[in-house]
Write a protein that binds this DNA or RNA. Structure first.
Lengths: 338, 338
DNA sequence: TTGAAAGCGCTAACAT
DNA sequence: ATGTTAGCGCTTTCAA
């Protein structure tokens, strides 16, 4: 088992031309089956592998998809990544995966790096900072350079490309309605992701549900916290309003933290305080009490994103851009009443 | 912002040869600074990027590292991945990352795929199935083909390559001792990873601690569970032994599950039953009570693995293979006595 | 200081 | 059925 062998070496071995070997290995009709057989057999036993990087030169597609994800420690993105990975591998695509770590600059650099290697397409969920700064030049440039992009979850609508999202408005709407239906009178919303598109949409859904039930929206019940604010203190201030009996948390970290604070404050859950959270990860399943969550089906989103990209790569025809919307579902657990 | 431009196009623009452009962009001493300047400026404004895939052809290194991880939903591997990602990006390396999903076949396929693209080196943690079947031909072949490999966490000692591991024996040893010191008399071990190298080592550490304290090792207290066995039932059978007052869980999933079962059975934690678990992820921090864990410093392991590989890639000299051992630390929480 | 030309490994159009 | 050749984008020797 030595260094990789080349067409040239095989050609020399059999005293034929490189072209013959190339054709033989590609099972061309032009080559006699005798020749094909011996060459293919030789190639196999000598573990010949075509160097896919050369594909770029002559053919155009590299069977490589770039993936940029904001944060792999986030359960939703981890699931989405697994979905992308499965779908890509199944279709013979290789992934170059990177983590933007929520940083705009890193995202810009990564895209440069990725374009530098040659990829057929890109799957991305935007960094928090990118959505906050609304600076999408790196994305637009990439599209202008003819690299198809699929954005998922954290998307920017003004950019012309395929998108896969969850119906965040509807998810929050349903969750809020569920709280109302099960007896909550005064529901607060906890968001540490208000800079994100999905954060804003979820707030919309919350408001929509209240309005439809003729409950006035009170801005002070919408708790928007930045990274640097003290979560515990802020929550305690909010909970001074003893009438609050429901909490809609926009992701799981703030949900489990809120749960702890609420428990410590002596509330009974779900009787005194009901909680629903976005992100159906592991945490909500194992805390006490278990938390009712809105599942965004990360795996399925990832799969769909990869599917969409691969479809576009295969039909090089210019089908119009699509936005696939994945339905959320409510996973009922012990933090809400029946 | 159009399609990527080539050396050829720049050459045509300035009526010089491709070679001149190439040299100018590489800051060659052969080119006049005037020429260099205008070409470099033009390249910059037109966003010229060298196609790294061509690097393979002429130069040998591609600045690409392959990463194969068994399961990204596992907190430890997610952390390790982040560590690898940071270190690689910092050093200008690109990652091609794949998930073996604990499958031997997938691991074999991925390695093929990776070798097919051209990479400088590979970082891998072995799939469960690979360790169970002890089939390492794909790894050995890769090494024989001259691709440096760094294995981390789940390593195979018989393979000659760099390795980064945690001191699993010592980690389990310390944890067991901590349980003993805080009053536990009869400690059971819960492993759902007995097919893994790390699982076996942790059992060793547990036994070592017992022996040093003159406590007989009882095999029936070592609970080895496969994927298909019913965890709850098995645990309940074990807990029929009412004298058990300590639990050493070899990873966090079984720890939180055990915790729930123990709580339901009416034990007081940590008074009636103390628990320590490997894997310092999010779960142990948020369950009730919080679980004392052994941190394997995933991030640092990943960083070290990448560091080790990059160092080897840079010094093409054949330094002997190293095994870096990262120390574990005990994070004390509420599931153990003081 | 610049350029011509070979070549990296491969494919594809065009001979033979 | 097989070979010749050009060329993908780039680097690198060698020549001018």
């Amino acid at each position: 088992m030595e260094k990789r062998i080349t067409l040239k070496q095989i050609a020399t071995t059999f005293n034929v031309s490189i072209a013959t070997v190339s054709k033989a290995l590609n099972d061309s009709y032009e080559i006699s089956s005798a020749t094909k057989e011996k060459i293919q057999h030789y190639a196999k036993t000598h573990n010949y592998k075509t160097k896919s990087s050369n594909y770029n030169l002559v053919k155009k597609n590299t069977k490589t998809i770039g993936v940029i994800i904001p944060n792999i420690m986030n359960n939703f993105f981890a699931k989405a990544f697994v979905g992308i990975e499965n779908e890509a591998t199944e279709n013979g695509y290789r992934l170059i995966s990177c983590i933007s770590n929520e940083s705009h600059q890193k995202e810009v650099d990564l895209i440069e790096l990725l374009k530098n290697s040659t990829l057929d397409g890109l799957i991305i969920s935007l960094a928090e900072e990118t959505q906050r700064r609304k600076d999408f030049n790196h994305i637009k440039n990439t599209i202008n350079q003819g690299i198809p992009i699929v954005m998922f979850d954290r998307v920017e609508n003004s950019i012309p490309c395929d998108k896969v999202v969850v119906n965040d408005i509807e998810g929050a709407f349903h969750a809020t309605n569920h709280l109302l239906k099960t007896g909550c009178k005064r529901i607060a919303l906890v968001s540490i992701i208000d800079s994100l598109s999905v954060g804003k949409l979820r707030v919309e859904g919350y408001k929509k549900a209240l309005i439809e039930s003729n409950i006035p929206v009170e801005e002070k019940l919408i708790i928007r916290l930045g990274k640097n604010e003290d979560f515990d203190t802020s929550m305690k201030i909010v909970l001074a309003d003893k009438k609050i009996d429901g909490l809609l948390c926009l992701e799981e970290t703030s949900a489990v933290k809120s749960l702890q604070i609420v428990k410590k404050a002596g509330y009974k859950i779900p009787e005194d305080m009901a909680i629903i959270s976005f992100t159906n990860g592991e945490l909500p399943k194992y805390v006490t009490p278990t938390i009712t969550t809105i599942s965004q089906h990360g795996n399925h989103i990832g799969k769909t994103a990869a599917e969409t990209l691969i479809k576009r790569l295969n039909n090089s025809n210019n089908t119009p851009f699509s936005t696939r919307i994945i339905k959320t579902s409510l996973i009922k657990r012990d933090s809400t009443k029946n």
